[in-house]
Amino acid sequence: MIPALVVAATVAALVVAALGGLSTVLRRRTGLAHLVAAGVLQLVLLVQLAFVLVGLALGERPPETATFLAYLFSVVLVPVAGVLWSRSEPTRWAGTVLAVAGLVVAVMVWRLLQLWEATGA
């Protein structure tokens, strides 16, 4: 895993969360800005996933492999789920749902990095 990408994903995730919160405050649904931010986040996560898969293919193994893989594949789904859910929500809480997804991603990428860098005891 590349720490710079983790930082990039965190920033993108926090931007998604902030935009989501802003929509709720402004009593709006989610719009183009949210889609773009979530798209950028998704792109960073997919690039990260590609690097990790290459690393795994080259024989690198985090100690808690099962947990790591569960985080690795579910984190990619969170922005998609958040966007789909927020777009189907007609009230101003659509943005907050997306913000929750953003914060979940921000936490998950750091946990992922932690699992990757942990050395087997």
Binding site: R28, R29, H34, A94
Partner: peptide, 19 residues
Amino acid sequence: LGAPATGPADGSTSTGPGR
């Protein structure tokens, strides 16, 4: 930033803040 939201939810958990 999104179209204006619809009015306050009618108090169900399937839409609005309950989401």
